Each structure stands twice: as C-alpha cells, then as structure tokens.
Simulated assay, not measured.
Amino acid sequence: MLLLIHGHPFDRTMWDPQLARFDAIAPDLRGYGTAEPASGVTAMSTFADDLAALAPDRDLVLCGLSMGGQIAMEFHRLYPERVRALILCDTTARAETAQSRQERLDMADRLSREGMEPYAREVLWKMVAPGADDAAEHVLKMMLSAPPEGAAAAQRGRADRPDYRESLTAHPVPTLVIVGSEDAYTPLEEVKHIPATHLVEVKGAAHLPNLERPDEFNGAVARFLATL
C-alpha cells in the first residue's frame, strides 16, 4: 500500500496529482483538513500512531513531504517491521538545533495569535517557485484553510522530534529522496543527510515538486515503485 502523508500547513488535496496516477491513500492528518481537531502539542509519534491505526498493513510504502516526510520517518522508527520502503520529499532527517527549535515554537505562538493568513502570504513563494501559478493558487488555498491551532500544535511537536538518521541506518529500507532544485527550506545539501538508495532533484521546483512538476515527480515515484 502506498500511503501519502501531507506536509504543513496543507491537507490531503496536496496529493491530488498523485492520487490521479497511483493506487494510494492520503488521509488528512490530525489538526488539518477534515481530521480530528488538535491543540497544544501534537507529537510526531501521535501522527505516526494515527497512521498505524488507519493503515494496519505491513509492506507499506510511505511517501511524505516536508513534515509528512518526518512523520514517515517517525513511523519507520516506531514500526520498522511494517515499512517496505520510504519516499521522502523535501524534508530533513536531522533534529532541530536550539535556534531552529525556538523558531518553531515562536511560529506556533504566532499562528495561534495571528491565524494563518499573514504566514501563508509570507511564505507562498518559498513553498512554490515563481511562475508556478496554478500550484500557488492551490497551496495558498490549503494554507488559508488550515486550522491555526492544529498547525501550531504540529509545529510544537516538530520542535522536539528526534534525529532520524540513526533509525534509518539501523533498519534500512529502499528509500527514494526527492527534492526541488529551488527549495530554500530543505536544499539538496540538506536532504543528502538522509540515507537514500535513490536521489532525484526536480529542476525548477521549490518545496512542493509534486504540485509544481507533477509529471516529473510521478515519473520518479513510478520508477522507484517498479524496483520494489
């Protein structure tokens, strides 16, 4: 089973181009979209446990982008026997630094205080590369629709996530890493810290290559799935 895990502050519709191509499931995460509301702190382990209950299968192929990639790695850390392969997109396996941890906590407080709109408009053209107007429209709609308290709770949980490189190395599985060449959040040098069997750089895309360059993204996923 291919399980698609969305990023922050999005919802399952970020995977529309992939759901049209692959036999997959793409749930809304706790605190986002139509899922159960959240507040306070949503730990990475809580997201992983939610997915484990939703998809009790073994031989799962987990595909996650950004926060979704970190949730996929958390699932792999907690349930390694259930993971057949990983597809990790525009994400990082490293834990937060003291500075970046505080920045996440500050952002969580900001989202609770201001709502989603100031943040969404501020980061839109880092999420997608200039010129990707259709993707930008979709991304802005998702961000503006995200519940602020759910998004803030996830940010607090991400602030305390572990370093996943040890668990990825201890329980190796086939791993595809995909990154947009213009991604300012997780550039190529950052994703190279993830132990990977395949690495694909999507030229011209920023943080959401699955929406910005869906044909290239889907092609990379299809080729990887064919090797399993």
Score class of each variant (00 low, 15 high):
A151W: 01
D49T: 07
R82L: 05
Y79H: 15
A226N: 14
M116V: 14
A48R: 03
D49M: 07
E201C: 12
G204V: 09
L2T: 04
F217M: 00
A159Y: 03
E182M: 15
V123I: 14
M143T: 00
H6I: 13
M116F: 05
S167E: 07
R94S: 11
K126Q: 15
Y79Q: 13
A52D: 01
I5F: 08
R12Y: 10
K126A: 12
P9H: 00
I71T: 13
A159P: 05
D16M: 01
P27V: 01
L168H: 03
L124H: 08
R12M: 09
Y119E: 09
F217V: 03
A151L: 06
G7M: 03
Q155P: 13
M127F: 12
M73V: 03
C63L: 10
E122C: 04
E149H: 13
P80F: 15
F22N: 02
I178P: 07
T34H: 11
M107L: 15
M143V: 00
D215L: 11
E117A: 12
A205Y: 12
G40K: 02
L176P: 12
L188H: 14
V139P: 01
Y32V: 04
A72D: 00
L140G: 06
L54E: 09
A220R: 03
Y32W: 04
R223C: 13
Y164R: 06
L78Q: 13
A72T: 05
E103L: 02
G150I: 01
D16N: 14
G157L: 09
R21Q: 10
D49I: 05
G150Y: 02
A43G: 05
L199D: 09
A20W: 07
A26G: 05
L86P: 01
L228I: 15
